[in-house]
Design a protein around this nucleic acid. Structure first.
Lengths: 222, 222
DNA sequence: GCGCTAAGTGGACAGTGTCCATATTAAAGC
DNA sequence: GCTTTAATATGGACACTGTCCACTTAGCGC
């Protein structure tokens, strides 16, 4: 059939299968709002055999790790765009938080995957070679997550420098704690919203606003 | 063999299989730090056939829902115990938060399961009969979660009544927002600690303390 | 005592993740 | 240009899964 290569006669080698697989998986996560889909289904979508993915990912978990990393990259860009041009740290912080929660709410499954245990190693007690500081998550996802967090860190630093926050701009520990507090609050709110556990009928943006106000001004009387 | 029922001749009917299955699953979650174990493995542990569980749970997800509910119950009791006898709301809040994070850190998989998507319905777009307010989680787990949250609500209410918090004790919305802010922060911190994403070398209790201080006193200069 | 029904059993089926041997081809070395 | 090589794709196999089905057992109300 040296001639019959009319329709869908794809070449033996895909050429860019790794990216194609990640994109297919990303689409599946979005559609099914779950990552229980089979690796074979991903392969089908990419138009390759059920074994082709193993040339690019040693396990299904590896693929999911790459998907999570893509999610973190998207989140970072979204936050960056949201705070672009905003000078006042308090305002930037609020915009950043709103963008963050929105991203999570728009694709809950992807957000859950980014922080989920699906990435953690199987770990039947005492794996070797994993420090307690990495929890067995793929390096790719960790790095992408750090990139996203950096956006927050920078806002905090600016606020500290300007004196808008009661934080020493030279005290690494204080800065780190402040960033962690903010991330915790926003991350937690995102999860609770996703899980429909807020127990509130207020709009999401309103919730974010109130949360950040509490964080900035505190619960105790001033 | 009317006589040979010497060893391990269990009766045909288990008697309390439902509870036994939940306990076996709970143990498996604790051991494997994952809920990818098979329903058949749970059945094996309970000493019944691979189909017996279906008389008590219609799906694997149902079992996991019951496990999650048990987790919430344990969390509630733990928080209750931690704040027993503490009068000052601020102190109680701190003790409660510490207990909460500790519980999550001690059994990360269980904690993740409680909030995880494993409970959410498969939901390939637009399920019927599920309002956007329930996200398809089993009622049992929802109720148990609400019970745990009530502990927090009560502390906030007490603080508001005493004037320790700048919240009107009669304003339901304000109270709700305050509780949600606290839950978000603590929930978020727990998750970040579990995921080893805090980026801090401080002890967990210290992190909780700092987080709660920020929440109580705010980031902005006083 | 007797039937009803809840609670147990084993078998079956399609589908999964992953391993293996094999085939195809792009790229590197001569 | 031709050949070797390593990367990439393929199909088959295996043990195992969740869930369905038909069937058996035995506790409980009449």
């Amino acid at each position: 059939m040296t001639e019959a290569e009319s329709i869908d006669q794809r070449p033996y080698h895909h050429g860019d299968l790794r990216r194609a697989l990640i994109e297919a998986a990303l689409a599946l996560v979005g559609e099914e709002q779950d990552w229980a889909f089979s690796l074979r289904e991903v392969a089908r979508r990419a138009g390759v055999s059920h074994n082709a993915p193993y040339n690019h990912f040693s396990e299904k978990r590896d693929l999911l790790g790459a998907v999570a990393a893509a999610g973190f990259d998207a989140l970072r860009e979204r936050m960056r765009a949201a705070i672009a041009g905003i000078d006042r740290p308090r305002t930037a912080l609020l915009a950043c938080a709103t963008a963050y929660v929105s991203a999570g709410v728009e694709n809950p499954a992807l957000y859950r995957l980014m922080f989920g245990s699906a990435l953690a190693a199987p770990a039947p007690a005492a794996r070797p070679g994993t420090t307690k500081e990495d929890s067995g998550r793929p390096a790719e996802a960790r790095a992408a997550g750090a990139g996203a967090k950096a956006v927050l860190d920078e806002i905090i630093l600016r606020g500290a420098k300007r004196g808008d926050f009661a934080i020493s701009a030279t005290n690494k520990s204080e800065l780190s704690i402040a960033a962690l507090s903010n991330w915790s609050a926003v991350h937690g709110l995102t999860m609770l919203v996703i899980d429909s556990l807020t127990g509130s009928e207020l709009a999401i943006d309103t919730l974010v606003n109130r949360l950040m106000r509490t964080l900035l001004e505190g619960m105790e009387p001033r």
